[in-house]
């Protein structure tokens, strides 16, 4: 062990040498997600297929949604009815949402047919599912903000359902101010957090080998197996 490789080699030696919770957390994080796994330079050859692009396609669409949404929110909920630019930004906001959901669903189909939850990747699948559900709620609150007859109709159908399950008093679809707040703060933040966790989990585990690939395949074996991490992937 050399002093200049400090934190990484210390992590490789195990958590024992850390005595504080911050040190132990760093050791754990470096073991589970070393920098070369977090930001890798290459991927196995089986990843060179368009089907692997849709997850990042959804991320890209989401980034545009956040940008255009910020412009809409900062100009207030009437601007996009009266300004030409406002209408345009509003339209691109909607179309990026359409792309976001289309990419997400194609991504989901791809992962389903690859059985991509294999090898200890269950939490990746679950966070993906959560991203889907939270995105639907976010889109729903977006439709309520159209402030036209469409949104009025949606709100007054939805209020009956929400009252029937007993949450209508706290999640009141007829309260525009409350729905605006859900749509522009809490829900996008929730989607962002879930997606970040999802992508970090993908980095931690590495991309799942195709169903037909043998586990003996040379490129599926990491150079220096770490039992604690790789053992789990063999499940």
């Amino acid at each position: 062990m050399t002093a200049d490789r400090g934190p990484v080699s210390a992590a490789e030696d195990g958590e024992a040498r850390f005595s504080t919770w911050t040190g132990k957390t760093r050791g754990w994080a470096l073991r589970r997600l070393p920098p070369d796994k977090l930001l890798p330079e290459g991927q196995p050859s089986y990843v060179s297929s368009w089907i692997y692009v849709f997850g990042m396609g959804a991320v890209a669409a989401f980034v545009y949604i956040l940008g255009s949404g910020a412009v809409l929110a900062l100009n207030g909920p009437t601007w996009f009815h009266v300004s030409g630019l406002g209408r345009f930004i509003n339209s691109t906001h909607l179309w990026s949402v359409e792309l976001f959901f289309m990419f997400m669903v194609i991504h989901l189909w791809g992962k389903f047919w690859m059985a991509a939850w294999r090898g200890g990747r269950a939490l990746t699948w679950i966070t993906g599912m959560l991203a889907f559900v939270v995105s639907i709620v976010t889109a729903f609150t977006g439709y309520l903000l159209q402030t036209n007859f469409d949104s009025q109709w949606i709100a007054f159908q939805a209020k009956d359902a929400l009252n029937a399950v007993g949450v209508g008093a706290w999640f009141n679809v007829a309260d525009l101010g409350q729905i605006l707040m859900w749509h522009i703060t809490l829900l996008p933040l929730a989607v962002a957090v879930v997606v970040a966790l999802h992508v970090v989990l993908v980095r931690m585990h590495g991309v799942v080998p195709p169903l037909e690939a043998a586990t003996s395949d040379a490129q599926l074996r990491s150079a220096a197996p770490i039992p604690a991490v790789d053992g789990e992937d063999m499940k």
Partner: peptide
């Protein structure tokens, strides 16, 4: 559109 994109991606 989604089905077509899925097939094209493969």
């Amino acid at each position: 559109t989604m089905v077509v994109l899925f097939i094209l991606a493969l």
